[in-house]
Amino acid sequence: MEIHPKITPIYQTSVFKFEDLDGIAQYFDEPGSRYMYSRNGNPNSDELAEAVNRLEGGQGAIATGSGMAAILAAILAYCEAGDHVLCAADIYGGSAALLNQELNRLGISVSYVPFEKLYDLKLHLQPRTRLLLAETMSNPLLRVVDLRTLAEECHQHNVKLVIDNTFATPLLTRPIAYGADITLHSVTKYLAGHSDVTAGVVVAAEPETAARLRQIGMTLGLTLSPMESWLAVRGLKTLRLRVREHSANALAIAEMLDRHPVVQAVNYPGLPSHAEHQLAIAQGGTQFGGMLSFRLPDDEKQVNQFMRRTQRFPFAPSLAGVDSSLSHPLSTSHRALTLEQQQRLGITVGLVRLSVGIELKEELLIDLEQALGQA
Rank of each mutant, 00 (worst) to 15 (best):
A199D: 01
V263M: 11
G23I: 11
F288Q: 12
A282N: 08
L239G: 09
G346E: 06
P114T: 07
S45W: 02
L368V: 04
I358S: 09
E102H: 14
I62M: 08
Q26F: 01
K361W: 07
L171K: 03
L279K: 04
D367Q: 08
V263A: 02
L103Q: 10
Q374E: 14
V162T: 04
P269V: 12
I71D: 05
T136F: 04
N40E: 11
Y11V: 00
L368E: 05
R143K: 15
A211D: 09
Q215N: 03
H274C: 02
E47I: 02
E135N: 02
A336T: 12
R309N: 14
D120C: 07
A280F: 05
F288P: 03
L86N: 06
E369S: 13
Q215P: 00
Q215V: 02
A51I: 06
A282G: 02
R344Q: 06
G270S: 11
E359G: 14
I163H: 03
Q101I: 11
Y190P: 01
G67L: 09
P226N: 05
A250G: 05
D146S: 07
H194T: 01
V233M: 09
T223Y: 01
A320Y: 14
Q343L: 08
R309Y: 07
D90P: 00
C87R: 07
L271A: 08
G373T: 15
D146A: 15
P170E: 09
N267M: 11
L98E: 12
N104G: 06
K6I: 13
R234D: 00
S195T: 04
L296A: 09
E245C: 07
A74R: 11
P170R: 05
I7H: 05
K117V: 05
Q264M: 14
D46P: 11
R335I: 08
D323P: 05
I10P: 01
G65H: 10
T348H: 09
D46Y: 05
Y27R: 13
R130P: 06
Q278F: 02
Y92P: 01
S33C: 07
G94N: 12
S111Q: 14
K237I: 00
L150R: 04
A61E: 07
R54S: 13
V52H: 01
N158W: 01
A77P: 04
K160L: 10
S138G: 03
G41L: 13
S109P: 04
H4L: 14
I71G: 00
E47A: 15
G284V: 06
L368P: 11
Y37V: 13
H155V: 03
C87E: 12
Y190W: 00
L147D: 03
V356K: 06
Y92Q: 07
L368Q: 08
G284R: 12
N100Y: 08
H277M: 06
S38G: 01
A96L: 13
A232S: 11
S33L: 09
E208R: 12
V187M: 03
A371I: 12
A73F: 13
L241W: 03
I216R: 02
I91E: 10
G32W: 02
A192Y: 00
A265E: 14
S333R: 10
Q341M: 05
T219D: 09
L236W: 01
F167G: 00
G373K: 10
V197K: 00
T129W: 10
S45H: 05
S66R: 07
A254I: 08
Q305H: 14
N158M: 01
